Simulated scan of single mutants.
Amino acid sequence: MPNKTIYVSEDDLKLFQRAQELSGGNLSQAISTALRRYIEMEEGRQEGYDEIIVQVGQGVGRKQRFSGVLLGEWGRTTGSRVEMFRVYRSRTGKYVLHIDRSPDWTDSASEGSENWLEGLFSRGAWKTYLGLADSNWGFVQGEATLEVVASFEDLRGKVPDEFYDLIADVATRPAVEDLDI
């Protein structure tokens, strides 16, 4: 196996020692992993892609990271929830759909009402306003999902039609357009 000698400045010695500790004693593997990630992200940045980190799952969930460019965002309300759609083009040419749904909320004072305006003037709501009854607020955890599709056409039906039409033209453009000026 070929060897490379790396000279480390006195100031960076603690950094290399900590990397060796975290890697279980294999500093070479830690350096290779860090360089692989650096090259991947830097080449992507030079091509116009950003490092994207999104939350996925219920509540706080977990974070997922990829290299991509945002093509567009679209928000809408459905009942007592807000949905936010984001579509990215990944560095590998796939399309990434991130949907973030807010928590669903309810108010016990307006329960049983067909709509929020009716609930605002309901008997239960007025009792709460006058301090004659307690109001209980609750919600079901929101959730976020991430889906990767092979082609732009695969997004049809997964996002609102208006949003699909809006970003259809943008999807074919390069991440960065070099101008000869």
Rank of each mutant, 00 (worst) to 15 (best):
P2C: 05
N3A: 13
K4F: 13
K4M: 12
K4H: 13
T5H: 06
T5N: 08
I6W: 04
E10P: 02
E10A: 14
F16M: 07
F16V: 04
R18F: 11
A19M: 15
Q20Y: 05
L22F: 14
G24F: 13
G24K: 08
G25L: 12
Q29L: 12
A30R: 02
A30M: 03
A30L: 10
A30I: 07
I31A: 12
S32F: 08
A34Q: 03
L35D: 03
R36W: 08
R37M: 09
R37H: 07
E40L: 06
M41A: 13
G44E: 02
G44C: 07
Q46H: 09
Q46G: 08
E47V: 01
G48Y: 12
Y49L: 02
D50L: 08
D50F: 12
D50E: 14
E51D: 01
I53Y: 01
Q55D: 07
Q55T: 12
V56W: 05
Q58M: 07
Q58W: 12
G59K: 11
V60L: 13
Q64K: 15
F66T: 00
L70D: 01
L71F: 06
L71Q: 03
G72H: 09
W74D: 07
R76Y: 07
R76T: 14
R76W: 05
S80W: 09
S80F: 08
S80I: 02
V82Q: 04
V82K: 10
M84F: 08
M84V: 13
V87R: 08
R89L: 03
R91K: 13
R91F: 07
R91E: 06
G93K: 11
G93D: 08
K94P: 00
Y95M: 01
V96S: 00
V96L: 10
L97T: 03
H98M: 04
H98Y: 06
H98I: 05
S102N: 04
D104R: 13
D104L: 14
D104Q: 11
W105H: 11
W105S: 03
T106V: 07
S108I: 00
S108W: 05
A109R: 14
S110M: 12
E111G: 10
G112T: 05
S113Y: 06
E114Y: 07
N115L: 01
W116Q: 05
L117W: 08
G119Q: 02
G119I: 03
F121P: 00
S122L: 09
S122K: 07
S122G: 04
S122D: 05
G124S: 11
A125K: 09
A125T: 03
A125V: 01
W126R: 14
W126T: 03
T128Y: 11
Y129T: 03
Y129E: 02
L130Q: 09
W137Y: 15
F139W: 12
F139I: 00
F139T: 04
F139Q: 05
E143T: 10
L146I: 13
L146K: 10
E147M: 04
V148Q: 12
A150L: 10
S151T: 15
S151R: 14
S151L: 02
L155N: 00
R156Y: 14
G157Y: 12
K158R: 15
D161Y: 10
F163P: 00
F163W: 03
Y164C: 01
D165M: 10
D165R: 14
L166Y: 11
I167V: 11
I167N: 02
A168C: 01
D169G: 14
D169F: 07
V170I: 14
R173N: 02
P174G: 06
V176W: 07
V176E: 07
V176L: 15
E177Y: 06
D178Y: 08
D178G: 02
L179E: 08
